[in-house]
């Protein structure tokens, strides 16, 4: 539950969502992320620290570089997110059933 909370606050920031979108395409180093986002290297590093703390990305050491990529657990969170979307949709479509029943009472 705490990791889920951390994931939410990490994902609440549009730059961090964009970084995740970039990492979905493949591994990247800090320097490779600096250019497209037009942010300073320390700013990118701060975002990466939050994403790493939330378990959404993992980093490995390669010489002086620490490339990051999406964490496998970031993908499994999707199942929980789907269940929330399902509840919202079920509420919507339950109401739509009522709307449809009221639209066409004579044809039954």
């Amino acid at each position: 539950m705490t990791s889920l909370d951390a994931a939410f606050s990490a994902l609440a920031d549009p730059t961090r969502r964009a970084i995740l979108a970039r990492l979905a395409l493949g591994e990247a180093t800090v320097m490779e992320l600096v250019e497209p986002f037009e942010l300073t290297q320390p700013a990118i590093s701060r975002h990466l620290k939050v994403l790493e703390g939330a378990g959404l990305i993992v980093r490995r050491v390669e010489g002086t570089k620490r490339p990051c990529r999406l964490a496998p657990s970031a993908v499994t969170e999707i199942d929980q997110w789907l269940s929330v979307l399902r509840r919202a949709l079920e509420a919507n479509y339950g109401r739509l059933d009522q709307v449809l029943a009221n639209m066409n009472p004579k044809k039954k």
Partner: peptide, 19 residues
């Protein structure tokens, strides 16, 4: 959605709203 991470972000946004 444009890519996997955006889909993940869309679903998580929905979850924030739901919560």
């Amino acid at each position: 959605l444009p890519d996997a991470a955006t889909r993940a972000a869309m679903l998580s946004t929905n979850m924030e709203h739901g919560m």
